[in-house]
Write a protein that binds this DNA or RNA. Sequence first.
DNA 1: GCTTTACCTCAAGTTCACTTGAGGTCGTAG
DNA 2: CTACGACCTCAAGTGAACTTGAGGTAAAGC
Lengths: 157, 157
Amino acid sequence: MSAIAKDLSVGAMAARAGVAVSTLHYYEAEGLISSWRNSANHRRYDRRELRRVAIIRAAQSVGVPLSEIRIVLDAVPPNSVVTAADWARAAEPWAARLDAQIETLQRLRKQMTSCIGCGCLSLETCPLYNPRDTLAANGPGARRWNGAPEERSTLES
Amino acid sequence: MSAIAKDLSVGAMAARAGVAVSTLHYYEAEGLISSWRNSANHRRYDRRELRRVAIIRAAQSVGVPLSEIRIVLDAVPPNSVVTAADWARAAEPWAARLDAQIETLQRLRKQMTSCIGCGCLSLETCPLYNPRDTLAANGPGARRWNGAPEERSTLES
DNA sequence: GCTTTACCTCAAGTTCACTTGAGGTCGTAG
DNA sequence: CTACGACCTCAAGTGAACTTGAGGTAAAGC
């Protein structure tokens, strides 16, 4: 155990990455991480997979769904030696997302107390809510915007 | 239509708020918004409810689950005249969340290209991933952290 | 008078990201 | 030799946030 393990069991991976074993099974089934089997049919993970898990969790924490995480991870083939440039290129779409998200959060934060109580009933000008911004498109409702009904076209009142 | 409507139909609300009618039904069933009925048993919404919907969507976009949104909205009784101070007090817990989230995003953004390609296999020191930070506790995995298995105790390798 | 349109209810279905459970296999420790 | 812990598979369950569908009403337009 004190010897540096070249590869990891699923339990060790789970412990080190701070996720459940079942989560690793799931990620593997989803093609986000990969492993090989030892003679006992137990999963063995390259230590590199730890980083992949870290990236998955980090990306999730900022609202990236697994489907998009997969796209980025797929750009970095497993078992390859990855350069910083490789990762930078793969993660490029996330950089933009993060920028947008930071900006929106700051806007929100700054105007939360003022706007939230501002009494404005005009959503058009309310900084708290502009449904067409990047966050709205990628955010939580990042479910499917099944096309907002009517696109607030008429009903100007 | 050009006359200023004092109250709104569910269709009008949906159009103006940019959500589906069924979503408004759902929010109402969940007690997040309220309405009364006209003679035809159709929902009528006070225009104030528009702002509530805006707040719901805004909060969701930064990862606040409906259960927590309800708590804040419940602190502001419906049909009451709400002052800025009322809202500021109710939204206080979100301010802290936003601060934490902004900070984490900025850290992530700044170190994304460097760390993601840094080749470090030491998650302990990887700025991309520290599973015990505020975001991890509130974030996407804001599902239930059913207690990370083993707390990365042993297995130092 | 008929048809459309907008609404109604209630139950069931959907997606995502997992978790839980049942039943079985290894390999080491006592 | 048997017990235990760590692992295996596969199917089914879970919770959040909605959406979809079936079946029905009510007023407004042609």
